[in-house]
């Protein structure tokens, strides 16, 4: 067992040294970005035309694969000592595009709900989102 571990460690180290893992990391990251964008597109179509996508293609399996490979990417990133700095500012257009997309999806899913309920659900959704944001990224470093 130990020999097998040593064998893999040795090979991983070699692949890290010669740059192969860096290539894998770059390709996987790019594939995942395309994958998540594709998922958003398919999810939007599904919201507009219920069952149009899911009758032909499993969005659940697709998302599971994306999620799984995200973990692989994270593990690979740690092994290669690569990290991304989250530079999400209010001026970032991606943030606003994501916000708009989320809003559109919410409005589509809440179509025909009473207006007051729509308002409450959207407010609750964004408040919960803000809370998670603060928990995950906005913690006060002085507290640590």
């Amino acid at each position: 067992m130990q020999t097998l571990d040593q064998y893999f460690t040795h090979h991983l180290e070699r692949m890290k040294q010669n740059g192969f893992l860096a290539v894998c990391y770059a390709l996987l990251l790019e594939a995942l970005i395309i994958g998540y964008l594709g998922f958003m597109a398919l999810f939007t179509i599904e919201m507009l035309l219920p069952t149009f996508v899911t009758a032909r293609f499993s969005l659940t399996k697709f998302f599971f694969l994306l999620f799984l490979f995200s973990f692989v990417l994270t593990a690979l990133g740690r092994y290669l000592d690569m990290s991304f700095e989250w530079k999400i500012t209010k001026k970032n257009p991606l943030l606003w595009l994501g916000f708009l997309w989320t809003l559109c999806i919410l409005l589509l899913s809440l179509y025909k709900f009473p207006p007051a309920i729509i308002l409450i659900i959207i407010l609750a959704f964004f408040l919960i989102g803000y809370l998670f944001w603060k928990i995950l990224f906005g913690f006060d470093k002085d507290l640590l």
Binding site: G19, V23, A26, L27, L29, E30
Partner: peptide, 26 residues
Amino acid sequence: MICTKPIIPIPEHWQHRYRILRAILY
């Protein structure tokens, strides 16, 4: 980010193969 430069620095001797693999991915 996509279709332009690599997301992370790629060693010089891997550049050619990386471009081919990227083309295959697309």
